[in-house]
Design a protein around this nucleic acid. Structure first.
Lengths: 182, 182
DNA sequence: ATACATGCATACTGGTTGGTATGTTATGGA
DNA sequence: TCCATAACATACCAACCAGTATGCATGTAT
C-alpha cells in the first residue's frame, strides 16, 4: 500500500495484501522501520538506477536518452502515474521524521543526480551538450522539475497539467543541446 | 505539527501545542477532517493568494515580480524551508486518500496557476513577455519546478541543491522575457 | 433571580496499531 | 533416524488514536 504512505499503511494491511503473516515478517525484519529501509535500498534505489543511471550510461546522446525515458514514463509495473513517484512520496513523508530514511533517500537522489550529471558531462565532451551548461545544476533542476511535475499530476488527476509540464521539461532539455546539433 | 503530516499529527499533540482542549475543538469542528479542510481554505489558500496572486496583480512586470518572490522565499512565519511547502506536503499526503482534500488543494493550485498565467498574459500585452509563450503551460511548469525544488531541498538539507534549482528557475523565467527587454 | 444556551474542560471508550510470546512446521546435517 | 535450528503461524498485549458523554462555567434575555 504505497498509496496511503508508509506510516498510514498498517502492517496488518501490508501483510494480508502480500499473503504473509506477521511471524514471517518479524523473522526477517526487526521492525516496520527496517522493512521500510529495505524497500528504499532494494526496490526504489534499484528502480532509479536502472531507469535513469544505467540506461543513460548506454545512451549515445544524453539528451535523447533523457527525452526517451521521459516519453516512456508510463509503462512500469507498480509505478502508477496517479500515485506519484515512490521515491519522492517517501521522501516527503519520512524525511522530516526519520533521519535513517532521510539519509537513504538523499543517497538515492544523489546517485540519480550524479548519473545525469555524468551523462551530461560526457555529452559535453562529445559536443552534444552546450559547454556553458553546469551539469550538476542542470541535473538538479531537471530532477526537481520532474518530481514537481509528477506531484502536480498526482494531485490534479488531469492529464493537461502533466502534459504542460512534460512539454516544459522537454523544451528545457532541448535548450541544453549545442546549437545546431539536430 | 505540520512537520509530521496530517494523519500522523495526533489531535492530542495539536491541542496541547495550541493550548486548546478537545472540547473546544469539537465545539467548532465536527471532526479532524473538517479541521484539516479549514486549514486548507483559510490558511494555505490565503497564503498562496497573498504571496503569488495578489502580489503579481500589482507588479509592473510579471517576470520581475516572480523573481522577487523567489528571492524572498525565506522570511515567512510558519513556512520553514526545511519542512517544504505546506500546500504540496498536504497534497502529496492526502490527495490519494481523501477526495475532499484533493478537490480543495486542486482548487488552490488552479488559482495559483491562473494567477501566474494571467500575469504572464498581461506581460505579453505589454511586450514584456515573449508572445510565443503559452501562459498556462509556463505557469504549470514554473509551479512544478518550484515545488520540486522545495521537495528536493527539504530532503537534502543541503543549500547547494536548492541554490542550483533556484538558479534554474531564475534562468527559466528570464528566458520568457522578450529578447532585448532589460 | 432564574432559565437556558453557548463555550469550553475532563474523563472515558471502542477500535486500531506496532510489536511480542509462544507454538508449529519445514529443512538440513550427522 | 534424530535433532537442532531456521522459517513461519497465531494469539495476544500495551499504547495510542479519534471521537463522545458529561459536567461546568459564563453570559444574556425575561
Amino acid at each position: 500500500m504505497y498509496k496511503s504512505g508508509f506510516q498510514a499503511a498498517s502492517l496488518d494491511n501490508i501483510l494480508s495484501n502480500a499473503n504473509v503473516t506477521k511471524g514471517a515478517l518479524y523473522h526477517h525484519f526487526g521492525s516496520k522501520q527496517e522493512l521500510g529501509y529495505a524497500v528504499v535500498d532494494e526496490l526504489i534505489r534499484e528502480h532509479i538506477l536502472n531507469r535513469w543511471v544505467r540506461s543513460l550510461e548506454k545512451a549515445e546522446n544524453p539528451i535523447d536518452g533523457l527525452l526517451a525515458i521521459l516519453r516512456a514514463k508510463e509503462p512500469h509495473p507498480g509505478f502508477d502515474q496517479r500515485l506519484g513517484c515512490p521515491l519522492n512520496n517517501l521522501a516527503q513523508e519520512m524525511s522530516p521524521l526519520d533521519e535513517g530514511f532521510r539519509k537513504r533517500l538523499e543517497g538515492v537522489f544523489r546517485e540519480w543526480r550524479q548519473g545525469i550529471a555524468k551523462a551530461l558531462r560526457r555529452g559535453q565532451e562529445r559536443g552534444q551538450v552546450r559547454s556553458d551548461v553546469d551539469p550538476l545544476e542542470s541535473a538538479d533542476f531537471f530532477i526537481a522539475a520532474l518530481e514537481g511535475s509528477l506531484s502536480l499530476a498526482k494531485n490534479a488527476q488531469d492529464t493537461d497539467v502533466f502534459d504542460n509540464c512534460k512539454a516544459g521539461l522537454a523544451s528545457y532539455l532541448k535548450g541544453l543541446r549545442t546549437p545546431g546539433s539536430s
